[in-house]
Structure formats: structure tokens, C-alpha cells
């Protein structure tokens, strides 16, 4: 699925060092490449702070993908038709695949998957807060595809031009799949809106619960977004939170009309002068509260990831032990 929290500081973020002022040749080359909009590759020299920021951002993104498997996974067993069940399993599987490419991209920066997972499990690393809300009905699955994957795409398309090569390339593949998820989610909702009264009510209820949370996915307003400026300078972030949010709203309002649902914001209306939709106040207190760990599902999501990891320890140990034995056998045979 995705990431919102690109610029949400976690512990490693707080320790972000200032780029040293000494103008070494390496640094000059790095700066020149960034200035020319070129790509930085794993073997290239890069400032420590750039490396740390990327590891933080890419691992947050990877964690979001795998935590994001849980809210939708909640409906796999109860999907109301075999076709929808297959579509949902494939989608959740794609999200796991996104997690894999992203962990691999972060590993090119010298941090291992185990270390990143330890950060997630200890609560030190963040993941997208949208996954801390419950999926209460089947319509949530469609709404997550339409709105959450939709917001993810808005956030991630600029990342396809990220200055760090492996991340940019991973994002190209991820974005293709997210667009597919968004279309599938929207299509599932269209079918429900043509169905029974109960189905239509289910869709509207899911939209009501998810709309504001999706707007918050773009992160705090630009004025309160301390990491954005450095990210922009480094070509890690390309478009500001508020601009992305506006683009998302402008794209989504007409889709909601076609679908026949009401977006739960009385202030939402077209502004002829701005050529954009105006919208109401996002509840940032609730957002930060959830980011800080006090949302409805934070504890369950994290504890479930930790349990899966701990319960799987013996399986991973067995695989390692077997691989070791095989290697020893091969050596013995060669000798």
C-alpha cells in the first residue's frame, strides 16, 4: 500500500545530523549531481544524513506495506464472492511484494531487513497511520483501494523521480500496481452502489469513516513540516504535502460524484478563483494522537506483526540450520 509518513520524525530522524559544511570533492560531486537532477546509486558517495533519511523513509514505507496487509487481510476469509476473494488475496500479496522491494532498496544503503524489522517491532520506526483504523465492513476493502491506494499513488508518483536510484526504480513498479489496486477498489464500489440499499449504505459509511483519514495521509500542513525543505533540496521529496493533498481532492471529488457517494465535508466546494476545491479543517490532534500510538488499532497491528515474527522464529532458524548443513555436506563432498 503505501506511506504517508514520509516526513514524520522517528527516533533516528531526531538525530539527523546537519550536513557538514566542509566542501570535500566527494560532497561537491554529490551536490552537483543532485543539482543536475541526476541519480545517486548505492556505490556512490553520499552524506550520512542523506543515507539515514532515505533508510528512515524507505523502511517506513516498507513497514507501511506490510502492516497494511492486516486491515485488508481482515476480509479475505469473508470475501462475498470467489472472484472478490481472489482479487483481494492478490492485492494483499502485492502489498507484501512492495514491502519486499522496498526492504531490498533500503538494504542497498547498508541497513539489513532484520534491523529495520527490529525498529518496527520496538515501536521506534513508524508506518502509515492510515492502517491504525479498523476495517469494519466489506466496503472498507473497496474504499481502501479507491482512496488509500489513490492517496498513496499521489504521494508516490513524485518518488519515481527520487534522487536515489533504487528507491525511484522500486517506486515505478509499485505505482503501476497501486494504480491497478485503485481501479479495482473503485470498480468494486461501483458494483456495490448498483446493488441493494444495504450495499449502498455500507459504501457511504466506509467513505465517511475513511475520507478525513486519507486527507491526513499527505502529512502535516507545509507550515508545520520541518523535514520537507531538506527532502526537497535532496530530491527525495518533490511536491509539498499541501499540494499533493489538493491534487488528491481535486481528482477524487468527480470520482465520488460518478460513484454516487457524498464526501463528508460540508466545506468542500469548487473555488473558481483558485481553480481548486476548498475543503474543511483536518483534525490534526486526532492524527498526531494516532501517530503517537493511540489510535484504535495501533496496538493490535503492531502486536500482530511482532507475534508473526516471534512465532516464525523456529521456521527461520530451521531454514538457516538446514542451509548450514547443506553447505557443510557440499564442502565434505568436495574434499
Amino acid at each position: 500500500m503505501y506511506t504517508q509518513a514520509m516526513d514524520i520524525p522517528d527516533e533516528s530522524g531526531k538525530k539527523l545530523a546537519v550536513v557538514p559544511g566542509t566542501a570535500s570533492e566527494l560532497e561537491a560531486a554529490f551536490e552537483a549531481r543532485i543539482a543536475a537532477d541526476g541519480r545517486i546509486e548505492p556505490q556512490d558517495w553520499m552524506p550520512d544524513a542523506y543515507r539515514r533519511t532515505l533508510v528512515r523513509q524507505i523502511s517506513q514505507h516498507a513497514h507501511s506495506e506490510i502492516v497494511g496487509m492486516l486491515p485488508e487481510g481482515n476480509w479475505i476469509s469473508r470475501a462475498p464472492s470467489l472472484k472478490r476473494k481472489a482479487i483481494l488475496i492478490a492485492k494483499v500479496q502485492d502489498e507484501g511484494g512492495h514491502g519486499l522491494y522496498l526492504y531490498s532498496a533500503a538494504e542497498t544503503l547498508g541497513t539489513g531487513r532484520d534491523e529495520m524489522l527490529a525498529g518496527l517491532h520496538s515501536g521506534k520506526a513508524k508506518y502509515s497511520s492510515i492502517f491504525n483504523y479498523p476495517t469494519l465492513t466489506w466496503a472498507d476493502v473497496g474504499v481502501i483501494g479507491w482512496l488509500v491506494d489513490g492517496a498513496a499513488i499521489m504521494n508516490q508518483i513524485p518518488l519515481c523521480r527520487c534522487s536515489y536510484g533504487p528507491y525511484a526504480r522500486a517506486m515505478i513498479r509499485v505505482c503501476k500496481e497501486e494504480s491497478f489496486h485503485q481501479r479495482q477498489g473503485y470498480e468494486a464500489l461501483l458494483v456495490m452502489m448498483k446493488g441493494t440499499d444495504e450495499q449502498r449504505a455500507m459504501v457511504q459509511d466506509a467513505v465517511n469513516r475513511y475520507w478525513w483519514k486519507c486527507l491526513a495521509m499527505f502529512g502535516p500542513p507545509d507550515a508545520d513540516s520541518p523535514h520537507s525543505a531538506q527532502g526537497m533540496r535532496w530530491g527525495i521529496k518533490r511536491i509539498s504535502n499541501d499540494e499533493l493533498r489538493q491534487k488528491f481532492i481535486d481528482a477524487t471529488v468527480p470520482q465520488a460524484k460518478v460513484l454516487g457517494v457524498t464526501l463528508p465535508d460540508p466545506a468542500l466546494k469548487w473555488n473558481e478563483e483558485r481553480q481548486h476545491y476548498d475543503y474543511g479543517q483536518i483534525d490534526w490532534t486526532e492524527f498526531w494522537n494516532t501517530v503517537e500510538g493511540n489510535g484504535p488499532c495501533n496496538k493490535e497491528r503492531l502486536a500482530t506483526r511482532v507475534k508473526a515474527h516471534n512465532d516464525g522464529q523456529w521456521v527461520r532458524d530451521a531454514a538457516l540450520a538446514y542451509a548450514r548443513k547443506q553447505k557443510e555436506r557440499a564442502i565434505k563432498e568436495a574434499a
Binding site: I66, M69, L70, G73, I76, S77, K85, A86, I89, A90, V92, Q93, G96, G97, G99, L100, Y103, T304, K307, A308, D311, G312, Q313, W314, V315, R316, A319
Partner: peptide, 22 residues
């Protein structure tokens, strides 16, 4: 098999069992 989705011992196995299920 789909019951493992999100709970596998390692991410690669979540994906493998989802494949089996699909």
C-alpha cells in the same frame, strides 16, 4: 492457506502461501 496472509514466518512465505491460495 489464505489464513497465513499477514502472519507468515517470513514475508516471502506470506507471498508463497497467498500464491498457493490463489
Amino acid at each position: 492457506n489464505a489464513e497465513w496472509c499477514g502472519h507468515g514466518p517470513i514475508l516471502e512465505e506470506d507471498l508463497a502461501l497467498a500464491n498457493v491460495s490463489l
